[in-house]
Design a protein around this nucleic acid. Structure first.
Lengths: 339, 339
DNA sequence: CTGTTAGCGCTTTCAC
DNA sequence: GTGAAAGCGCTAACAG
């Protein structure tokens, strides 16, 4: 914590014997600067240990080069994977993500979205179902927004156009359900998750059940391990319990796995369980969870692309990009018990 | 994306019929503002939908109210837990974390630490072992730094003082090892992790082994699932394999679990495995990993406190805060096979 | 208690 | 090609 003033662009300029603006040009790699001067500036920067002040740059340029990423639970590996895809892509176009985890950020008064806006982000990507639709609606009038893995908030306003990048939730859930049906299950319960995505998965589940002439059972779950545990525990307690559970996501499925364990039900012999998202959790061999692969990384990449385009002013009509979903069968599903 | 200029403090002032500075005072909740004027300002803010521009605030105030949090893998639940503790505490003192995940942030040229500095963060908390010691050393001369769950980089310079918050790695690893010894194991292998923390855990392991008169075996591992898998696979292949593995952390332990599974070794009957960090992964009942609880949340909280103090100018001597570690026995450890 | 006056460090026309 | 000057939106003394 030295007490000497940290060097500014002006110091660099004087030291290099040029003007402020010339330094600014060099900083931004402007091609039209004579090699000699560029060299002089670079040396001065080096000698001074000069670091450009981003804050001042942003204020001056009226463009921050950052995009807000609104997650809602860093504990869910799905978010992290999607984030990885988005980050990689943003990097290539000179944008930097600024994360906001609505779960940990309980800053009173100001909504996370407004925080982002105040920070002058150039765009926002909303990852997964979120509340805060009100704030987003406002935000949409100021910066471009893309929704990744969610359809909410729908109707962001008449003349604002947001892009949506999702997987085929209906088909994914249907595939998961069909898999159970094909294995011989007839009593299959679905643990519903939040939002429109939750509804679409219910729809896929219902379609598959109906096609097979089976009676659907949907119970409200959630997107966390705890909620999956609680829902599954309820469902698996007592008689008339299902022989298979199709969960909203991997986290909920893992909660269900735990519930089964606590009720001394062995998986998959007594109860089959399938997740959604195909996160690394599903791949852990000791869990080896049958799950729906939904192109998480690709969604992140595409979301970032869309956002970057819109930030560049390519203001087209709203787009919906859908990546396919496919089932990955592992060891938490098998034929139902004989009874 | 409306085209109207977003309102500034000046617009608010005119609309409320007061001066810019009065608005500024209201914004910062200054007590010395007459209720009438405050009310007028608030109404103007409301009517205009005014949002203060953080960037301008920071530039003016020469203080950003943010602290950089240098993680190195968002996929490791340990980081996320620690982050949660830190965030909660930072919030209470009006500081906001800005995350940098060195794993996903591969921004060429500028080190993540420098990025943080350019953003004018008021301090940095380094979570877990990091490279980039060089940049941190430079940073330490500009803002306060606290290390959480790591001792690196050591020696940040003569007159800079950084605080360190860690758990008792030696005791934690020793407890894990003793547990195996008490169960009757004699062939116990330790999967070493990175950095000084890795060394301390090795030390704890060695001490426990030596006390019991057993021969230690340490193999290099890593901190990821993959590296744990690879190391364990090597160790468990062929004859003369250990009956117990003490891993560097939960992620590595889970990798080891998978390796055992792939080699058709059943856990814990044929091989016991213990992790470190006691993350939610260890608690998943289907994994039910014996692990060392190391007060992750408490470390995050304390790190944030230390940093906040230093930012407030309470520049004391460097401190080292150590939280206790304790073993949580679950179902991946048992007596060794009879042979 | 309130308004005025300088900046904060950088970008950006716009002349030279 | 390079430099001068005018902001970006807000904070922070300092007078009134």
């Amino acid at each position: 914590m030295s007490t000497v003033r940290t060097p500014t662009i002006r110091d660099v300029a004087t030291r290099a014997g040029v003007s402020k603006s010339l330094v600014s040009l060099v900083l931004r790699g402007d091609p039209g600067v004579s090699p000699a001067r560029r060299e002089a500036v670079d040396r001065a920067i080096e000698e001074l240990g000069y670091q450009p002040n981003r804050v001042a740059q942003v204020l001056g340029a009226r463009r921050s080069g950052t995009v807000g990423v609104l997650l809602n639970d860093l504990r869910n590996p799905w978010f992290v994977d999607l984030l990885a895809g988005a980050t990689a892509t943003l990097d290539t176009v000179g944008l930097a993500p600024v994360l906001v985890d609505s779960a940990t950020t309980r800053r009173v008064g100001v909504s996370p979205v407004d925080q982002l806006l105040r920070q002058q982000v150039d765009g926002i990507v909303v990852v997964g179902t979120t509340d805060d639709g009100e704030a987003l609606r406002r935000a949409a009038t100021v910066v471009p927004i893309v929704l990744a893995g969610t359809y909410e908030p729908a109707d962001l306003g008449v003349d604002v156009s947001v892009d949506i990048v999702v997987n085929d939730d209906v088909e994914g859930a249907a595939a998961a359900t069909r898999h159970c049906i094909d294995l011989g299950h007839t009593a299959i319960t679905h643990l519903q998750g939040p939002g429109r995505v939750g509804e679409l998965r219910v729809q896929g589940y219902r379609e598959a059940m109906s096609t097979a002439g089976l009676e659907p059972t949907v119970v409200p779950g959630g997107m966390s391990e705890e909620s999956g545990y609680a829902a599954a525990r309820r469902v698996l307690t007592g008689t008339g319990r299902p022989t298979a559970i199709v969960a909203y996501n991997d986290l909920a499925a893992i909660g269900a796995l735990s519930a089964a364990h606590d009720l001394s039900l062995v998986v998959p012999e007594q109860v089959s369980i399938v997740g959604y998202d195909n996160t690394y959790l599903a791949m852990i061999r000791h869990l080896s969870l049958t799950s729906v692969e939904n192109g998480t990384l690709a969604i992140g990449v595409q979301a970032a692309r869309f956002l970057a385009e819109r930030i560049d002013g390519k203001g087209r009509a709203p787009r919906v990009h859908q990546v396919p979903a496919s089932l990955v069968v592992r060891r938490t599903t098998s034929s139902p018990p004989e009874t």
